[in-house]
Simulated scan of single mutants.
Amino acid sequence: MRRFGAILALAVAGLLPLVRYQSSHDAAARASSAVPAGTGAAPAPGKTAPPNPAGGDKTVDGSLVQTEFGPYQVRVVFTGTKITDVQLITEPSDRHSRRIASSAAPTLRQEALRAQNANLDTVSGATTTSNAYAQSLQAAIDSQGG
C-alpha cells in the first residue's frame, strides 16, 4: 500500500507540468484578443492618440513585444518631447509572469521618467520584463520622433 501512495504522488507530480503548460501560441492568441487596460480602445502600436486639449499631452503605444513568457507593451505620455508617464498595458497572462511584471513595472517606470529614454537598468529577477519594457518604450519614443 505504501508503494502505491508513492507511485501515485510521483505520477501526479510528473503530470502537473503538463496540465499547467501554456504554449506561446496560446498566450499570443489570448493577448491579441484581450483589450489592453486603459481608457477605451487604444491606438495601434506605434500610433499616437490625439493630443489632450487640456494639457497638450500626446499618448503613444509602444510596439507589442513577444517574449517566451508572453507579450509586453507600454503606453507613453509625452508633454512636448518629455516623457511624463509610462504604463505597462499588456503583460503575459500567467500568474507568475504577471507578478514579476507588476513588481518590476514601478521601478522601470521611475527609471524611464528619470532617464527620459529607453536605456533602462535591468530589474533583478525581471530580465525579460525589463528588456521587453525597454524595447516597447523605444518603439514609442521612435514613433514620437524623440
Score class of each variant (00 low, 15 high):
residue 80 G to M: 12
residue 59 T to I: 13
residue 59 T to M: 08
residue 76 V to T: 15
residue 61 D to W: 07
residue 73 Q to I: 05
residue 78 F to Y: 02
residue 70 G to V: 02
residue 64 L to E: 10
residue 66 Q to E: 13
residue 56 G to K: 05
residue 63 S to F: 04
residue 63 S to I: 06
residue 73 Q to L: 09
residue 58 K to Y: 02
residue 67 T to Y: 08
residue 63 S to K: 07
residue 88 L to F: 06
residue 79 T to G: 09
residue 90 T to R: 15
residue 53 P to W: 09
residue 65 V to F: 06
residue 57 D to R: 00
residue 82 K to A: 05
residue 79 T to P: 03
residue 66 Q to C: 01
residue 59 T to G: 00
residue 70 G to K: 01
residue 69 F to Y: 05
residue 86 V to R: 06
residue 54 A to K: 12
residue 76 V to R: 11
residue 58 K to N: 05
residue 61 D to S: 08
residue 58 K to C: 01
residue 85 D to R: 12
residue 65 V to P: 09
residue 65 V to M: 15
residue 87 Q to Y: 04
residue 89 I to Y: 01
residue 56 G to V: 05
residue 74 V to G: 10
residue 72 Y to V: 04
residue 87 Q to H: 11
residue 80 G to A: 08
residue 68 E to L: 11
residue 84 T to N: 06
residue 84 T to F: 06
residue 87 Q to P: 04
residue 66 Q to Y: 10
residue 59 T to K: 11
residue 70 G to E: 04
residue 89 I to Q: 02
residue 53 P to C: 08
residue 87 Q to N: 13
residue 64 L to S: 09
residue 80 G to K: 07
residue 60 V to D: 07
residue 74 V to T: 14
residue 66 Q to T: 05
residue 69 F to S: 12
residue 75 R to F: 02
residue 58 K to I: 09
residue 58 K to W: 05
residue 56 G to H: 10
residue 51 P to I: 05
residue 68 E to S: 13
residue 90 T to F: 04
residue 77 V to A: 07
residue 82 K to Y: 01
residue 86 V to M: 12
residue 86 V to L: 14
residue 62 G to R: 11
residue 61 D to F: 08
residue 87 Q to R: 11
residue 82 K to E: 08
residue 89 I to N: 01
residue 81 T to D: 15
residue 73 Q to A: 12
residue 83 I to W: 10
residue 59 T to F: 03
residue 63 S to L: 11
residue 74 V to Q: 12
residue 75 R to M: 11
residue 54 A to N: 06
residue 76 V to P: 11
residue 83 I to V: 15
residue 61 D to A: 13
residue 55 G to L: 08
residue 72 Y to H: 10
residue 62 G to D: 01
residue 79 T to D: 12
residue 88 L to N: 00
residue 77 V to I: 11
residue 67 T to S: 15
residue 78 F to N: 02
residue 69 F to R: 03
residue 54 A to P: 10
residue 56 G to N: 15
residue 70 G to R: 02
residue 56 G to Q: 03
residue 81 T to H: 13
residue 60 V to I: 15
residue 54 A to Q: 12
residue 69 F to M: 09
residue 84 T to C: 01
residue 63 S to T: 03
residue 60 V to K: 06
residue 84 T to K: 07
residue 81 T to R: 15
residue 51 P to K: 14
residue 69 F to N: 09
residue 60 V to Q: 10
residue 67 T to F: 13
residue 58 K to V: 10
residue 75 R to T: 04
residue 87 Q to E: 14
residue 76 V to K: 14
residue 80 G to R: 06
residue 68 E to F: 07
residue 73 Q to D: 07
residue 70 G to P: 03
residue 56 G to T: 03
residue 65 V to Y: 04
residue 69 F to C: 00
residue 76 V to I: 13
residue 64 L to W: 01
residue 88 L to T: 04
residue 89 I to G: 09
residue 62 G to A: 10
residue 74 V to H: 13
residue 51 P to M: 13
residue 84 T to V: 10
residue 58 K to F: 06
residue 77 V to M: 06
residue 89 I to R: 14
residue 71 P to M: 03
residue 67 T to L: 15
residue 85 D to N: 15
residue 63 S to Y: 05
residue 70 G to C: 04
residue 73 Q to M: 03
residue 86 V to W: 14
residue 53 P to Y: 10
residue 77 V to R: 08
residue 57 D to W: 01
residue 62 G to M: 11
residue 76 V to S: 13
residue 83 I to M: 15
residue 62 G to F: 03
residue 81 T to I: 02
residue 60 V to H: 08
residue 85 D to A: 15
